[in-house]
């Protein structure tokens, strides 16, 4: 009894310090991400004069000048359309290829399975600039250069490792017995998949599809090298904003960041699940 009485204030002290530290690190981490985004927002919504002046204001002026400029900018809408088309193709292809691979990895035993898994990750080890030149040459030979499909192919290779790993963990989370039960109840492998597995993993598949979309949306290097006329938004902005004034650079960055942020926010639950933080 006396023991607890003596210990209590001490424990309370430790806990308080712990909580304070915890709050501080959370704040710091949030600031790390949010402050740049906030500045991006302020500068986008500021008039050119404010952007270039010091000291900076912390409240936006709601000057839509830069944004309206972009909306009317030559080629802007085409680039936006290209971005969407490429990202959409990437999304579809990476799921069509990645999901079966994830399924095979989680359900079948085959030779070299571990090596295959490693290899999938290793595809991310090659820096894109290293591949870009040979790719460009090959694309020109096959006529794939400067097409949405060609660029989507490259983006798909970037997105596939994630698609495979996410779907692998999704499929592994579904007990094999569910499928086996379906087989004994009159399903073929295919109908068991469509009637039992698919409904259970559909939300997760959607998440990994959106993730592929974001990867393609944000990718700039391959887009810049492999397209000339049919530029995606990232490549287009990179090209046109190189010499543009600061306030337009901010606005361009803003236009790029926002859709990606919205997507990531929409699928955050599944990203957590994928990292094993929370299982649903």
């Amino acid at each position: 009894m006396t023991d607890t009485a003596v210990l209590l204030p001490d424990q309370g002290q430790t806990r308080k310090t712990g909580r304070w530290l915890y709050a501080a690190s959370v704040t710091l981490l949030c600031a790390w991400v949010i402050v740049p985004l906030y500045f991006l927002l302020i500068n986008t919504l500021s008039s050119p004069e404010t952007v270039n002046s010091f000291p900076k204001s912390f409240v936006p002026e709601f000057d839509l000048g830069s944004l309206t400029f972009f909306a009317g900018f030559q080629g802007m809408l085409t680039a936006l359309k290209n971005s969407i088309v490429v990202a959409f193709l990437t999304m579809v292809m990476s799921i069509l290829i990645g999901a079966p691979a994830g399924y095979a990895l989680s359900r079948f035993e085959f030779r070299g399975k571990e090596a295959f898994r490693l290899l999938i990750l290793l595809t991310r080890a090659f820096p894109l600039p290293l591949l870009a030149l040979p790719l460009a040459v090959m694309f020109i030979r096959t006529g794939l250069d400067d097409t949405a499909f060609g660029l989507a192919l490259v983006h798909t290779t970037l997105a596939i490792p994630f698609a495979v790993l996410i779907t692998f963990s999704l499929f592994s989370g579904i007990p094999v017995e569910l499928e086996e039960a379906a087989w004994t109840l009159g399903c073929t492998r295919l109908t068991a998949f469509t009637k039992v597995v698919l409904p259970l993993i559909l939300p997760g598949i959607t998440a990994s599809a959106i993730f592929a979309f974001v990867i393609s949306w944000n990718e700039v290097f391959a887009a810049a090298v492999l397209t000339i006329e049919n530029r995606t938004l990232t490549a287009f902005l990179l090209q046109t904003l190189g010499e543009a004034p600061l306030h337009l650079k901010f606005a361009g960055g803003f236009i790029l960041v926002v859709p990606a942020l919205i997507f990531i926010f929409a699928v955050r639950k599944y990203l957590f699940a994928m990292w094993g933080i929370a299982n649903r």
């Binding site: 017995e177 569910l178 039960a181 087989w183 004994t184 039992v196």
Partner: peptide
């Protein structure tokens, strides 16, 4: 034959009740 054509039904240890 595949399981569905064998005229069998099975009860699993962990029940395998479809959650959806």
């Amino acid at each position: 034959l595949p399981p569905k054509d064998r005229g069998i039904a099975m009860v699993f240890q962990n029940y395998a009740v479809f959650p959806h």
